[in-house]
Every structure is written in C-alpha cells, then in structure tokens.
Amino acid sequence: MKIAIVLFNLGGPDSLQAVQPFLRNLFSDPAIIALPSWLRLPLASLIARRRTPKALRIYEQIGGGSPILGQTEAQARALEEVLSADNTCEWRGYVCMRHWHPLTETVARSIHRFAPDRIVLLPLYPQFSTTTTASSVKAWRKAAHFKIPTVAIDSYPTEPGFIAASVELVKQGLAEAGSGPKRLLFSAHGLPERIVKAGDPYREQVEQTAKAIAARLGDVDWSVCYQSRVGPLKWIGPSTDSEIARAAHEQVGIVLYPLSFVSEHSETLVELDIDYRRLATEAGAPVYVRVPTVGTHPLFIRGLADLVRAALAPPVKAA
C-alpha cells in the first residue's frame, strides 16, 4: 500500500527577491483578510509593498531567506524513516507550503504521479486555527481532486510526543538559565482578537499545550504570551514583549519557548533571538534563554508518526 503524507506549513521566502510576492500571497489569503477578492487582492498588493522594506531587513539578518523549507523537508524525511518500520506500506512525505513554494497545486501533481492508496493531511501547526490549518486544508481541497481515501489531522496540542519533546527542550533551557529565579514564557504567534471571538480555538489550544508542558515540569513560574502583531487591529494578549518587560522589572530570568512553532524561521531567529533578546537586555533581565523548536526531535517525530497511524486506522473519514 502506498501512503502519501502532506506536511502543511506556512512557508517563507527563499530569497530577498521572493519577499514581496510571498507577502502578497500571505495577505491575499481570505483566512488572513476576510474581504471580497475584488477588494482583498489590491489591498494585499498594497500591504505587501509597504511591508517589504521591513521584511527585507528581517531576512537579511538570517542569510537572505527563510530556512523553513529545508527544516520541513528534514521533518518529512525523519517521519518517513520512522514510519518505514512498517514495511507493508510505502510511505512518502510531501512538504506543502501555503504561501510560498512548493505550493499546493504543485504538490498535488507530484502526489498524483506517486498514485497513493491513501493520503494523510498533516498540519505542522499543533494548535488549530482558521488562519493556518483550515486555510491549508481548504486550499488542498480546491487544488487536489483525488478519488481515494483522504484524512486530515486537525490539531494535536497535547500529543504525548510533542509534549515530551517540548519538556525535554524546556528542561535544558531552564538548566541553562542557572539557579536564580526565572520565569518560563510560552510564546505563541498572535491572532487578531476578532478571529478568536468568532470561534477560533487557537488560544484555548495554546493554553492546553502550555498547561500540559508545565504539568510535566512541576513547580515552575510560567505564563503564556503572544508575539508577531501586525497592523492596527486589537490582538490577543498579553504580548510577548510586555511579558519580557514585566519579568525584567521583577528581576527574574527569562526562559522563552515558542510552543506554537515546530521549526525555526524569522519569527524565532529574528524576533525572539535578536529583537526580544535586545529588549530583555535593555530592560535589565538577569538572563534570557530561548528554547529551540522541536524540529526533528525524535520524540516529536515519533509523535507525528503515531498521529499518522491513528488517522489511518479504520474507519477512515473523508477530509
């Protein structure tokens, strides 16, 4: 049996020349800007042009492009390796980016050539949001027309392998921070408040992840915060920068874990590692440690493999 696994992620520009078209694709997504296309598309082009100079400065700091494609490819290959223990199936992982290459239509054509018997849609967003998982699945349904069983994994905010990998990495970060008082900040990508009020479960699932990790750590001072605000809308909070400032004011060390990201990209390598580290230093924080994302951590990859196997167990639901 041949099984295709589609690993969804947002994507990122692979060169400085790709920054503006990537931003245009991002803001053209109706899940990001909920306006009619005749208004949304010109607005997306305008926002992309205005944001490009700032975005260029960001990507210049990490080599001129996002590393997310290579990291997601590594996750796909690691997942194939774990699943290949079941030699009754041929497993193949496909990276599918929502707003940059490889785009959905291209991936669907590749999978068509593979001719699988089953397809599993696996979002690399542990917490569900209409702006990420739902947007990716909707784009897949529009582009892919397979008459074979397809199942979508919605979310996995407390999946044991994901939590175990997170706990292991956070423990290393806490040890690196030393013996003094410290606070663990769980930082997640923010959302406009109106999206959450409309019923998006993202914030609730982020808190589920944080509580699951904290429960495994025992007695630890922790809080959840949100980063990457864009535009004039009110976003969910508290903001990561305000929590960093509060911890610094209280003279406790900061250990920051980006629990909604499973790979490194501009929002971890620049926003957290450079911008927020500078903020913490200038605010007088005694220590600032940024915990890496789960990446290809063996416990996380085994957790993804468990999700895939469970999704394929009968009965198989249509995506």
Rank of each mutant, 00 (worst) to 15 (best):
K54G: 06
V107F: 15
V82E: 15
P67R: 03
T106W: 06
I47V: 13
A48S: 06
M97V: 03
D117T: 07
R98Q: 11
Y94T: 02
I33M: 11
W100E: 04
W100K: 01
A76I: 09
Q71R: 12
A48P: 01
P30W: 14
E105M: 06
I58P: 04
P116W: 14
N87G: 08
L26R: 14
R113Y: 12
L43E: 04
W91M: 05
A115P: 04
A48R: 03
I62Q: 02
Q20I: 08
I68Y: 01
L39G: 01
E80N: 13
R92L: 00
S84W: 06
R50E: 07
A44G: 07
L83Y: 03
D86P: 00
V82R: 14
L26A: 11
D86C: 10
C89S: 08
S66I: 01
R40P: 07
W38G: 01
T104C: 14
S15W: 11
G65L: 03
W91Y: 15
P42S: 09
I58A: 06
T104R: 05
A85I: 02
D29Q: 07
K54L: 09
W100C: 01
L41K: 11
H99F: 10
G63W: 05
G93L: 03
L16V: 11
A74D: 02
E90D: 11
I33S: 03
I47T: 08
E80Q: 13
Y94Q: 02
A78Y: 08
I58W: 13
Q17N: 10
I32C: 04
R77Q: 14
L35F: 01
R40G: 13
I68P: 04
A76H: 15
R98H: 11
P36Y: 13
A108C: 15
L26F: 15
T104Q: 09
N87M: 00
S37A: 15
A31I: 13
R113P: 02
L122M: 14
I47P: 00
A74K: 04
L41A: 08
V107Y: 11
S110D: 14
Q75A: 03
A78I: 09
S45G: 12
R50K: 14
G63F: 08
P36S: 13
I111E: 00
A34L: 07
L26T: 11
G93T: 07
I32A: 02
L122P: 01
A44R: 07
F114S: 08
P53V: 09
I33V: 13
A76P: 10
D86H: 12
A31N: 04
I47F: 11
G64A: 09
W38Y: 10
C89A: 14
A115S: 14
A78G: 10
P42E: 13
Y59E: 01
E90N: 09
G65M: 01
N25G: 07
R51W: 00
P30T: 04
P42C: 06
N25D: 08
F27Y: 15
R118W: 09
G63V: 07
Y59T: 03
L83P: 00
L39S: 03
G63L: 05
D117V: 05
P42H: 13
L16N: 05
R109A: 12
T106Q: 15
E90G: 00
V19R: 02
A55R: 09
L79I: 06
